[in-house]
Design a protein around this nucleic acid. Sequence first.
DNA 1: CGGCATCCACAGTGATACTG
DNA 2: CAGTATCACTGTGGATGCCG
Lengths: 230, 230
Amino acid sequence: MRSYGEFCAVAKALDAIGDRWALLIVRELMLVGACRYTDLQHGLPGVATNLLADRLRQLEKAGVVSRELAPPPIATTLFRLTPRGQDLLPVIRELGRWGAPLLSEAGGDEAFRSYWITLPLELYYYDPTPEGPPVTIEVRMGDEPMLVEAVDGKIRVRRGSAKDPDAILTGPPWLVLGLLSRRVELQDALKQGVDLQGDAKVLNRVRSTSVPESPSARTAEARPKVSRTK
Amino acid sequence: MRSYGEFCAVAKALDAIGDRWALLIVRELMLVGACRYTDLQHGLPGVATNLLADRLRQLEKAGVVSRELAPPPIATTLFRLTPRGQDLLPVIRELGRWGAPLLSEAGGDEAFRSYWITLPLELYYYDPTPEGPPVTIEVRMGDEPMLVEAVDGKIRVRRGSAKDPDAILTGPPWLVLGLLSRRVELQDALKQGVDLQGDAKVLNRVRSTSVPESPSARTAEARPKVSRTK
DNA sequence: CGGCATCCACAGTGATACTG
DNA sequence: CAGTATCACTGTGGATGCCG
């Protein structure tokens, strides 16, 4: 992409990572860690292969992504974030926080990967009962089961399934997310197609730090501005 | 732009404000407040007028920008951020924080507006001597003078010039910024074309909360990750 | 199979000119 | 002042092919 040619930190950042797909590539590498090319293609449904190759080169030149040739047993190229790339976590976090209210509607035909819920759960959620025993919830939203654990006040998310989870939550992503964020009541969720097996009380071990409202539910009151005494 | 079609908060956010120029329009409205169309053009050097019109419509539809027809004495259309648009402040802040190290080099032919320094100064800087008397520094970097005030522990920035500032700082943007962030020593700055009149000690009233390093100066040590027990 | 490069149709971009 | 209109150009997305 053409540079904005502005001497401004925001413009410079956008020069580096403002291209289409660039920040989503960063998201993937943040969530999955080291990735093969095809792993990235799987996590970025719809990306054209030439574009992915282009962006990876670009991000490499910008010092955000590094490329390494894995040793013999794997024998493939691995892409991973550099430290400078890891520094993009706050950007991803705030973008995700701002975008979260846009997920309140069904999402029907949109692409979804179960591990994407790692982002909101680990960034904005916590366990309000840190003194309680660790609990494990298996979440099934389609492509692969995920394990959500509440332990020591934190929420951890892993891929895989447990042999004996405290609860199993099955349903479409938007309902599961709505339930965990308490935008949707349990009864309503059950009516709309969520299935919950096991102990329903463990859901109380998952709390959001910032309850995202629907974007239209915002009032027009005055809010803090950066500047300008106008 | 085409939607990414992903059920992911980051992707949804980028669907709304990931287009070229969109976030820079938000930056302008955050810094300047209500803007006329031509004010935006002035603050976004190089934007094509049809693109600006397109983006404003888009941002309006996304609930980020509102358009109002100012009453008779002004009789023009004013654009301003909605509350939902103001919520983008953390995104702008983190993008700017990440991009700040990219400003360490000269910047020569790049466009610059003096009021852009409001962003870093008010977001990442503070007055380390809140009990001290208020001080005012007039900063001249080209197009218009700015007033930087340290008072009550905070840095405030306004347009305009003072009749009796404690100091006057004149020079190219990258050197002035380097000086204020302490990436550049006063002596070096003076040698490279900065002029400082008045009391040099007032510069100690401006401190950065996060000292941005040069991006290449980063080590390759391990850093916190979002996730993945790998 | 993994990691691209090439080709093509088309949507988005940028410069300029023009208008109510 | 706040755009719209036009047009050359570039970036994007989809398909396919290549090569170790």
